[in-house]
Simulated assay, not measured.
Amino acid sequence: MKSAELPLSSSTGRLSDRIYDHVLGQIAIGILPVNCRLPPENGLAELLGVSRPVVREALTRLRDDGLIASRQGAGWFVTRRPAANAFDFAPVSSIPDIQRCFVFRMAVEGDAAGLAARNRDKQSLRRIQQVLTRLDTMVAQGREGGLGVEEDLLFHRTIAEASGNRFFVETLTSLREQIAIGVNLNRNLSLIQPRGRILRGQQEHRRVFEAIEAQDEDGARRAMRTHVENARKRIFEGG
């Protein structure tokens, strides 16, 4: 099998760590699939601008992790991909990170909602509506209804599922912990703010659903982006 090219990123850190992370990333996303032969060590060293011992150190670590193996006279070959959770997003560790997560969600979830409007069927639409109804009930009950964090997360996930593209679902799954921080904060603040605040959030949910129901792709995308941006503003700017 033809060897893959491996342009090295400009990240900083110990050289062997950079080579290790880079090759690991290429394996994880399938650029270097299982059974693919890596370029020879000398070729890798020249291609990546490092010495051969640095390359060998990184490849030895990958071998010890069970990701590559050396075949006598043939070179290094990929033996398996890393576990699915190997590249889970790092935890949110600061207020700016929470805001960045909202900005990221605007792009990803906006497009997911647009695709959901295009691809949804009766079953996926019914699932979204069921979660929306549960949120309606919780909002109507106020404090007694609970925070509704899980239901809020589920509403967004069912829309991603309705898109018909598993990568939207996998992205939200990987980001679940980070998204939950923002949702939890938003809904906690809603309990101590005027009731109109949580009602506005639920009205935004309904507008997203109605656009998906109407198969209005552009409208669903706009409604979801507006909702996520407004959720960010409700936390950091009030209202």
Rank of each mutant, 00 (worst) to 15 (best):
T60D: 09
R61G: 06
R61H: 05
R63Q: 11
D65P: 09
D65Y: 04
G66Y: 08
L67W: 01
A69D: 13
R71K: 08
Q72F: 02
G75T: 01
F77A: 01
F77E: 06
V78Q: 07
T79R: 12
R80L: 03
P82M: 10
A83P: 03
A86R: 13
I95V: 15
P96T: 13
P96L: 08
D97C: 04
D97A: 14
I98H: 02
R100N: 06
C101G: 00
V103E: 06
V103K: 06
R105T: 01
M106N: 07
V108R: 10
E109M: 08
A113I: 07
G114C: 05
L115Y: 04
A116S: 12
A116G: 05
A117M: 10
N119P: 04
D121E: 05
K122Y: 08
L125M: 10
L125E: 14
I128C: 01
Q129W: 12
Q129M: 09
Q130H: 11
V131G: 05
V131N: 06
R134L: 11
L135R: 14
L135Y: 09
M138C: 10
M138V: 14
V139W: 00
V139M: 02
Q141E: 15
Q141V: 00
R143S: 12
G145E: 11
G145W: 03
G146L: 10
G146C: 08
L147K: 12
G148W: 08
V149P: 08
V149C: 11
L154D: 15
F155Y: 15
R157N: 12
T158L: 15
T158I: 10
E161N: 06
S163R: 12
G164V: 02
N165T: 05
F168V: 06
E170Y: 03
T171E: 12
T171C: 08
T171D: 02
T173E: 13
L175H: 04
L175R: 07
L175F: 09
R176I: 04
E177T: 09
G182S: 14
G182A: 15
L185G: 14
N186M: 15
R187P: 10
L189W: 01
L189V: 09
S190G: 05
